[in-house]
Design a binder for these strands. Structure first.
Length: 588
RNA sequence: GCGCCUGUAGCUCAAUUGGAUAGAGCAACGGCCUUCUAAGCCGUAGGUUGUAGGUUCGAAUCCUACCUGGCGCACCA
């Protein structure tokens, strides 16, 4: 319907251009027809007279009159009139948007989808939590957002691959290995000192250590616990903690030997990764490709990147380290790629990883990161630019982390200290539906405070139920129909759509017709929250309708038509919820 | 100190990306179940959109300054 009106306006504009009222070079492609917010303003509104007034050197009201006069006749439009400062408001004939309902019924779960961007391959990287501990609530938001976004993009035709980058190499993994090993040794030597400050302290460390001891009691033992701590610098706050930890890691590698140490390390990472995969599966989050950092570190990719950057004079050697001169590419500081000890930095690996992504033939990359990584965006862009890519091909979606409160007190979410609510705990407490809905119901740049105890207490009031309830109510209507031995004649209903003339029915079908534009908008803006708001509105319109009118009435034509309408509503709710990973129950 | 994000009803958030009289849900108050699911609906009350300027037909939205809160500024990841 919007397109139809836009076409009418375009024709009118062309006529005015021929009459020299509008400049001939005026761009008439960007005509925007909006659904009126207020019924007094008709069904649809266009603001072109206001937008074009300046170019036409003509007062908006006068231009609006001329546009109106030049509009071609349409049997779908009852009237077009001018209001306010120069809006053109359109009133449609009743049933003009009946093709919406028909399309929804025939296209079902494909309704509103488009193939517009089917030539675009997108790599969407999300979560990418280090395999050093279970997923927590913050990761849950990244996962829920990333998964929903991928679904949304797919509705517009994008070929999306969902990837998880596994940081399974480097110091963090060493710390994990050491933490588990020390807890493991406690089973053998009761007097093992407590874990270093800088180690991982989560409960899961002890759990895995016990598991390891049960499975491999002898494999990772040592003769004398003093061998581990002899000559190790003491454990104090600050830098001393890191020195203490690094010395212990080195000692562990000596005592265990390379093979055993590596085996232990791999055992730990594998265990944790399995847990992460399980959590995501339970959460309904799909990952197509698990990309190991080792693919980067065990190949020559970093060296290749370095060579490429050298060719472009983007490398400088300072104080024994190799720097990427990021300042020449829009970053505020230069960045170290190769440390003085000849080890590449995380940034070096990450640059190689992003280069690898683009080499795989993706047109664009989307990274879903926690907002605390925003300082990293400029340097990643700079690196891609230096490697000769258009930095616009990398889009970084920064998701505000969830600040959790319990009983009004902020919970320190520290992976290292092991103080966090895991995603698994959250799911067990509020369920997958509520959790996924909660994570995407707000725009990602909204910082949010969330009292867990409150959310658990109010779980019955979670807004997800409002939408699901609308769906369940509609399903119930069809069960009711059966009980009354009635049959829904869809074709008869479609033929009788013009009889849907109640205010609530018109509002519903108008809102249904907005679904395709909503999907497109949500995908373009990378904001699942837009879809959520749409669904809330749709559910609200339905509940109002349901309370005001009976659907199963005696008049069979009206009944069938109403059943067509609510069936369309049901389909859209189910489709929309599916895109954000929330179920649409048949009954509640 | 520098940079990024944020500020809308008592609370949590919307506002079709610059449109018409800023809207929902909680919380408060008053109504609606003998009838398709009351996890619902209808109504009342609640606002100088952080502050001050600017841009234009028109600003919560864009620009500038200041204020508030969050985050980031490693040879950590």
């Amino acid at each position: 319907m919007k397109d139809h009106i836009a076409t009418l306006l375009r024709t009118a504009a062309k006529r005015l251009q021929n009459q020299q009222v509008l400049p001939t070079d005026l761009d008439t492609r960007g005509i925007k027809v909006e659904l009126s917010r207020d019924k007094k303003h008709g069904d649809f509104a266009a603001n072109n007279a206001l937008v074009w007034a300046k170019a036409a050197q003509c007062p908006p009201l006068k231009l609006a009159q001329q546009l109106c006069a030049a509009l071609p006749h349409s049997e779908l439009i009852q009237s077009a009139h001018i209001a306010g400062p120069g809006f053109i408001n359109f009133v449609c004939v009743i049933g003009a948007d009946k093709h919406t309902i028909q399309s929804i019924l025939t296209q079902a779960d494909k309704y509103g989808h488009s193939e517009e961007y089917s030539d675009q391959r997108v790599l969407l990287e999300s979560v990418s939590s280090n395999p050093t501990g279970p997923l927590h609530v913050g990761h849950g938001r990244l996962a829920a957002y990333g998964d929903s976004l991928a679904n949304l993009l797919a509705t517009q035709g994008y070929r999306v691959q969902r990837e998880y980058y596994i940081n399974d190499d480097g110091r963090q993994i060493d710390i994990l290995t050491l933490s588990i090993w020390i807890c493991y040794l406690k089973h053998i030597f009761p007097d093992v000192p407590s874990l270093p400050h800088a180690a991982y302290h989560g409960e899961y460390i002890r759990v895995y250590a016990s598991m390891l001891y049960e499975q491999e009691a002898a494999q990772y033992g040592i003769d004398n616990i003093d061998d581990l701590y002899a000559g190790i610098p003491s454990d104090n706050e600050g830098e001393a903690a890191d020195r203490h930890l690094d010395a212990l890691i080195e000692r562990a590698q000596q005592l265990l030997g390379v093979d055993n140490y590596t085996a232990l390390s791999q055992w730990a990472v594998t265990k944790i990764l399995h847990a992460i995969k399980d959590d995501l599966a339970v959460f309904g989050v799909r990952i197509d490709n698990w990309f190991s950092e080792k693919k980067i570190t065990h190949s020559q990719e970093v060296r290749r990147i370095l060579a490429k950057l050298s060719e472009r004079d983007a490398i400088a050697t300072r104080a024994g380290a190799q720097w990427f001169v990021a300042t020449q590419y829009g970053d505020e500081k230069d960045r170290v790629l190769i440390r003085h000890n000849n080890k590449p930095t995380y940034f070096a690996n990450d640059t190689a990883y992003h280069y690898n992504k683009l080499q795989r033939g993706f047109d664009s990359l989307i990274n879903v990161w926690g907002a605390d990584h925003h300082g990293y965006v400029a340097r990643m862009r700079a690196a891609l630019r230096a490697l000769g890519f258009d930095a616009q091909r990398l889009k970084v979606q920064l998701v505000q982390l969830v600040a959790l409160y319990r009983h009004g007190k902020k919970i320190a979410m520290s992976t290292r200290k092991g103080e966090f609510i895991t995603l698994r705990q959250l799911i067990e407490e509020v369920g997958v539906d509520a959790a996924r809905f909660f994570f995407v119901m707000r725009r990602i740049d909204q910082s949010t405070e969330f009292d867990l105890s409150l959310a658990i207490a109010q779980s019955k009031d979670n807004p997800v139920y409002y939408i699901q309830y609308a769906h369940a109510r509609i399903c119930s209507l069809y069960r009711q129909l059966e009980e009354r031995s009635l049959v829904w004649d869809q074709q008869a209903g479609l033929n009788a759509l013009a009889q849907l003339e109640q205010e609530e029915e018109l509002a519903l079908s108008r809102w249904l017709s907005e679904y395709p534009a909503t999907l497109k908008n949500a995908a373009q803006q990378c904001e699942p929250a837009i879809l959520v708001n749409y669904l809330k509105q749709l559910a609200g319109l339905f509940h109002s309708y349901y309370n005001a009118h009976s659907i199963i009435v005696n008049d069979s034509a009206v009944r069938n038509a109403r059943l067509c309408l609510v069936s369309a509503v049901r389909t859209i709710i189910a489709n929309g919820l599916r895109l954000i990973g929330v179920s649409a129950p048949q009954s509640m």
